[in-house]
Design a binder for these strands. Structure first.
Lengths: 130, 130, 130, 130
DNA sequence: GTGGTCTAGACCACC
DNA sequence: GTGGTCTAGACCACT
């Protein structure tokens, strides 16, 4: 069962934090397609935020194809197919990679440590060819 | 000489795009400590944005120690020392890594390709122990 | 015999999907006046939805004159007479046409292809003067 | 300059009416890429609806790539590229066509009239090969 | 019960 | 000035 946590003082808006957590859980295989996620009202009560904020997050996720909502039933995880072309995906990957490596360098961490953590991190995710 | 490019329709605010580009250029060694960057007015004219926006970016960079402004002379790249503790750095690295890998998985790219691009990307950066 | 299919993740409510399918079958001549359609219970069981949802759809169809229910016998297709004035019909047609063409243009399909598919599509329907 | 009109008693939500009107104006070439559309507050005042409702519509349009918002400047029309595969587009076209023809038949309008209006309607739109 | 829409009004970030 | 986010609370449609 997916557990949410929000950091109110984070610069990231609350709804975006919810979205990111669903994205991560899906990518790591913690949240499986078909599995139900908390109802809007439940989660709003648990996290002490307004139901509208949760609804906004769920709507974004639905538009991205990461969840489907069944009227009167609730919201469920789904498998999203990436609609982008192969070149576009590569381009985005390079950009995100550049951003990540920029952060790593500015943290002043040695090259070895970063690549080591990278390899360890990869194995925690659910890759397409699995 | 560092070249700036902004994407007006990007979700990232303009000032943040400037900041990010300086961070990337510094991390890749393209922009070396002591090298001058364009003046606020020059850059504002070139990018067709409000000078206040550029000033805001430079202010942020100065606060982060990535540039220093010498009155009457201009703005120059500097080397910032990361003030965070070792544990804090590791924590941030892990978080950024998790975010990056989440993106990669959702792009639907195979594990092999991602690690390959990662290794290729690393060599373009200037790591501390170099 | 009419066959129903529902798409749970569709934005259209389930009852509306049922209604639309009866409308399409009637317009195409697949469902002929007098022909029986499944009982509420049968259909609910087959589609795995709440009987109330089916009942709601049949109620809407009855109000539109597309079906009639004979107590104890079941529900049967009927021919509805459009009660709108000629001008009103034209106005609605234009509006629906505008919506359809808006979709077609945004799909990026060439003009020729659309008009070709239109002509092919028309011949599958049962027009009044036939 | 694009003019908006909403019908409060329509079953379609207000924000969807706004979205549809921008889609139609774009498809007909009335609204050209780069052209500014009213600000959220302006339009809210003019249509006597809540600014949030307008903002919601504009956000949907932005996600669809039909407009871009420039921070602090306003919202501008853009050209969206359809990212769907050719087969997917055809499939959607057929479905929308079937829905449109179903409406036409149920309006009780003769085949000739419908095809005549169709041809006349097509010429009011801006097709890709133009 | 579920989610969806809308209003009112506040505060913030960006330009 | 611009749009973005959040809250509070209402009402509705669907299952």
């Amino acid at each position: 069962m997916i557990r949410f946590r929000i950091v109110p003082q984070s610069p990231a808006p609350i709804f975006a934090q919810i979205v990111e957590q669903v994205r991560q859980a899906t990518a790591q295989g913690t949240l499986r397609p078909g599995e139900q996620i908390p109802t809007v009202r439940e989660l709003a009560k648990e996290l002490l935020v307004n139901p509208n904020t949760i609804a906004r997050a769920y709507q974004d996720l639905e538009r991205a194809g990461l969840v489907v909502t069944r009227r009167g039933a609730g919201t469920f995880a789904a498998r999203a197919d990436c609609v982008l072309s192969s070149e576009e995906r590569s381009r985005i990957l390079e950009e995100k990679l550049r951003e990540f490596l920029t952060e790593a360098v500015h943290l002043g961490l040695p090259r070895k440590l970063v690549s080591q953590r990278f390899l360890a991190g990869m194995s925690k995710f659910k890759w397409p060819e699995d």
